[in-house]
Structures are given as C-alpha cells and as structure tokens.
Design a protein around this nucleic acid. Structure first.
Lengths: 186, 186, 186, 186
DNA sequence: GATGAATGAGAATTCATTCAT
DNA sequence: CATGAATGAATTCTCATTCAT
C-alpha cells in the first residue's frame, strides 16, 4: 500500500472510531467521510461495506484488549492481574460506549467473532491462574465485562464512574479475595 | 372500545412484543403490521408514533416488574425476596431480549422514564430491608439486572440459562450471604 | 330528511365553514367531524367526498353573493349599487380567505362552476346598468373581486383593511365617477 | 460542480419550474424527479427539502423582477416605466401561474421573504418617481400585480390575455394619466 | 342511521452503495 | 486512485374513504 493510502486509511479509522464512540453505529458513512476529510467513495474503497468498517474499528479495540490480557499472563499476582485487566477492559468499553453497544450483538461479522474468540482465549489463561470461585471461562469474563459496562451505560453522562462500583460488586462475587496474596503462605 | 378493536389491538401488541423481543426497536412498523395481520394505518390509529408503541410494550413489562417488587415488600426473608425478585426480573428481560435493549436507554420516552422511576422506587424498598453489602439503591439493582441480562444475551440461543450463573456471581458479590437466615441468631 | 339529520347537517356545515375559513382545504375530514361533534362516517353520509363538502360550503357563499347582487338589480343608483356589491363581496371573501383560496381554482366541481355562472349572470345585470368604462362583464367583476381579495390576503392579519384600499384603486379605474348620480341630468 | 451535475440540476429546475407552474406546490417530489428523469434522492442532494426547491424556483423569478425594476430606476418617463414594469411582472407571473400562487403567502421561507422585500424596495423607487394617485408603496404594487394575475388565472387557457385588460383597469385607477407625457408642459 | 375502526396509497426524507468523471 | 453525483429501497406518518358493528 502506498504511503498516502496508509495516511488516508488512518484518517478514516480515526474519524470512524471517534464518531462511533460518540454516537454509535447510526452515524452515516457520509459524516465519517466528511470528518475524515475524504470522499465517500474512498471509504468504500477501503471497506467494502459499512459493517466491514465497524468490524475493523471493533477489531482494533479487541486487539488492544488481547494485548492487555496477554501482557498479564505471567503476572506475579494472577488474581490482581485479572482484576486489573477487567478494570482496564471495562474502561475501554466505556470510552467507546455506543461502539460496544454495536458490537454487543447487532454486528454479526466473521472478523469480530474471530477476534472475540482470541480474546476469550487470552483471558482464559488469566482466569486459569487467578483464584476465582467455581467454574469461570475467559468467555464468561468477556461477557461479564460488557454486562458491567452496559449496566452503567444509561447513566454514563450523569455518573461517569458508576461502572467502577458495579465492577466492584461483580469482582466481590467472582474472586476469592484471600487470593490477593496467593503466594504469601508458601 | 369495540370488541373487534380490542382484538386488533391485542394482535398488534402481541406482534410488536414478539418482534421487538426478537430484533429490537429497529423493526419497522410495516413489518409489525404485517405480522399482526393488520394494515399499517391501524398501527398508527392505536399508537400515534412508533415510540408510543414501544413505550406501551415496555411499559407493560415495567408494570409487571413493579408488581413483582411490591408483592415482596413484606416478605419474611427480605434478602431472599430481593434475590427472588432479581431472578424473576432478569428472566423477564431474557424473554424480551432486544426489548430490554430498548429500555436500556436508547428510547427516550416520558412514560418509560416514569415507569423506570416507579420501578426503582419499588425495588428500593426491597433493597432497604435486605442485607446487602455497602450502599445500594433500587436504581442500581434495576441497572444491574439489565447488565446481567445483556451480558448473557449474545449466547441466549446456545445457553439459555447462562444468565442464572451470571446473576449468581453478582448476588454473591451483592448480598450478605449469612442473611439468608437473618433471624437465626435472635 | 328527518329533523335530527337536518340538525346534524347544520353542525357539519358550520364546523366545515369555520375550519375551511381558518385554515383552508388542508383541514382533514376527521378534524371537521370532531369539531362538529359527529363521527367521520357521518360526514361521508352527507357528502360523498371531501370535495363535495367543500363545494357545498363554497356554494353557500356563492348563493349569498347571488342574492346580494339580485337584491340590487333595481337600485336607484346602479353605479353605487355595483360599488356596494363589490365591497360586500370582497368582504365576504376576506372572511373566508383560505376557503376562497381553495375555491380559486383548485376546486373543479360542477356545482361550484354552475354557481359561479349564476353569480356572473346576476352581477352582469348590475354591470349593465352601472356606468362603467369600456366593456365589462359580470364574470369580469367576479374575477376582479377575487383578485382584490387575493392581493391583500398575504397581509390580512397585519392590515385587515388593506383590501379596501385596493378595491378603491380598482373602482377608480373601473367606474365612471360622474355616474354616481346618473339620472340627475335627465 | 461537475459538468454532469450541472446538467442534472438544470433538468431538475426545469421540471420543477414547469410542474409548479402547472399545478402549484402540491406536486410531489417524486413526480418532479420522474419528469426530470432523475432519481428521487438526487432531488434531495440538490435541495435539502422540498421547500428549499420551491424557494429556489421562486427566488429566480423574484431576482428577475428585481432586475426588471432596477433597470428602470432612471427611466426618462417614470410613470411609463412603472406601467411597463407592472406589465412585464404580471406577464412573468402568468407564465408561472401556480408558482405565484405559491409565492402568494402559503410558502413561508426566509429566502423567499427576503427576496420579496428586496423586490418591494426596488419597486418602491419606481413608484416614488412615477405620478400615482395617493399613497402607494412598492409592496402595494407587488401585491396588486399578484392580484391581477390571480384574477385572470382561472381563465388563463381560454383567454390568455385577459390579464392585460385587468391590469389596464388597475392602472387607470392607479396612475395619473396626464403623467404619461410629464415633460410636455415644461 | 350513526359510528369510528381499518385500510393502504402516497408523501417527504435518509442513506448505503455504485459508478462515471 | 479519489471523488462525489446519482440511485432507489426503506422508513415514519397522514388521510380520504370504506364497512362491520
């Protein structure tokens, strides 16, 4: 890909990211193109359909979360690592509210589903090492993160930190708190 | 209202309920009318706008939940009552998947907002009597219920009971478990 | 026709007259029915189509004007009579602004056309006796009256009497002013 | 603007002009698009709303009249100039029958109102120099022109030149005829 | 006879997508 | 390659008219 095409693509992704985050999937391609400073046709040159564009944006978000999970695979305190990861992840979702709302289910896209699967795997490793009550899969954690976000979303403007309280409730139910220093008794 | 009008209205509400539950507020009035076996114009005779129709559907759901909450106001075991109510409520949301998605906030309708406020009040009484950890309002409980539902929603078809596990996690974090027999120490 | 049917018809005509006068032909049959305190179906029992109803209303106006013209057929001062008639007629049109606006041409109805023809004939007699410049038919006078009304109509609210000035201009051009006492020199 | 877009726009304006002239503002955008041989969406690409389209059409007509008035501001015989202008103006209205009907007041559009104000000003200069009876503003002249047109409009097809007679009546009432040779007495 | 419930043909407008320039 | 002009299906909503009760 040529240098200017790369730049154009970045402008497009930045604009789409920002607008989807602000207003959800309802934003029109025309608005995104305008904000990106490019023509409508150019959007479709990069992404065959609007859904492909959304999938690309969501994909970037997922990639970021995968990295966040993997970077904690060798954490000294795995339970704290899981807690940190979930906090980080929900914060990301909150940043992208409407976008998540989009990813929540209305988007049925192969790339997204593959990304979610990768994320679930990466998180599963975290879960496996952490001290959690009962059975819990990486996929469970991913779903629960979206649940925390969506529970707090209606009041995002009024109480931007509400999700932290809700995540706290969940973590209290999920984690074996004594495990916050799991190796100390060895 | 005439007998045939009552029947038509019921057909309309049933169709709208089912389609909103399946596919959310995105379904068009035309589709609802077709499924109900009535004309487009008839929908608007019963509900002046599409939003009014949605509000009516959601309103019925909310009324049911309000009643479910109020009927437990004098429960002998208030903590169990809250648990029961939340279980009942999430089950109702699951029945109406996308509809909840609608109630979540995307719909801005006076009737809905009033209903949600009533529900929060009714639940607040339950919360006040139950043994819960820390501060918790009726509104928190309502929001958390939608969160549980939405977390499990993507897998509703594959694992219809997933929400029960997720609700269990939350309740573990929320309730003071010893309170399941609150009077035992008297 | 039974007595109550007569009463119903009068309510309908009164309501239709008032609403057409206020807001023109755009008012819906439903609104007229409501204002008349009768059912929509009853409107169509009396008038097969909305246009028939409009024609009836306009017809009443025309009948009134025909009478106004005929009552002056034997006036002592025919030129003054014509002037009076035109003043009376434009005033009637102004009362019914939007209605006239409707009758102005958009309505193509046999009854209306017949009424206008009768009116033109009745006015023609007036014109024939008055001292007017050049050729002038009854139909000309009728059309000119609507023209005066329509010229002033856009400012009806701001300057309710503007039409009197405009009618004055026209009469100055139309009438032989010395004729105000046409028989005095005999 | 691209060459093909210019052509499309012209087709659109021509079609809209003709159809508004024939049938007034009631014609649907769909019909205009069909007559222009373009898609419905293309109409809205050029004019955001139907009212904008109407305003554009009427605006062109008004601009033409403003120019016609201003070009006569320095006429040697001001009274003849006013007569000429009014003749020219009514002729333009006759070309656009229903369109004028639109401009008459039913359309409430900022651009149109501004244009009419400009026209009234330009005509006022003409009136100020002409020898007219009594008080007469530029706005009066504009309104009276529409009145002449509308009076004759119902018979436009049968007697296309009827408006000339009616304008003659009005001018006889309006103008001080001796002024047709204003310098003769010097 | 009266009623108002039901109808469905439009109307204006939006927007993802295609394609000529 | 990039552009934005053109498209037309889809959407919400209105209203004259019909007809079962």
């Amino acid at each position: 890909m040529r240098a200017d095409a790369v730049r154009t693509r970045k402008q497009l992704l930045d604009a789409a990211f920002a607008m989807f985050a602000e207003r959800g999937a309802e934003v029109s391609v025309a608005e995104i193109a305008e904000r990106a400073g490019i023509g409508k046709g150019t959007v479709f040159r990069h992404f065959a359909t609007k859904e492909d564009l959304i999938a690309a944006i969501v994909g970037d978000l997922i990639d970021d979360l995968v990295e966040a999970a993997e970077s904690r695979h060798d954490a000294v305190d795995p339970t704290a690592a899981l807690r940190e990861f979930m906090t980080y992840g929900v914060a990301r979702l909150v940043d992208n509210q409407a976008l998540c709302d989009v990813a929540g289910g209305s988007v049925r896209h192969l790339d997204v589903e593959a990304g979610v699967a990768r994320l679930a795997d990466a998180v599963h490793v975290l879960v496996g090492r952490a001290r959690v009550r009962g059975e819990l899969t990486g996929r469970d954690v991913v779903l629960l993160m979206t649940g925390v976000h969506k529970a707090a979303a209606p009041l995002r403007d009024a109480e931007p930190d509400l999700w932290r309280r809700y995540l706290g409730f969940l973590l209290d139910g999920l984690l074996d708190t004594t495990s916050s220093a799991p190796h100390s008794r060895t």
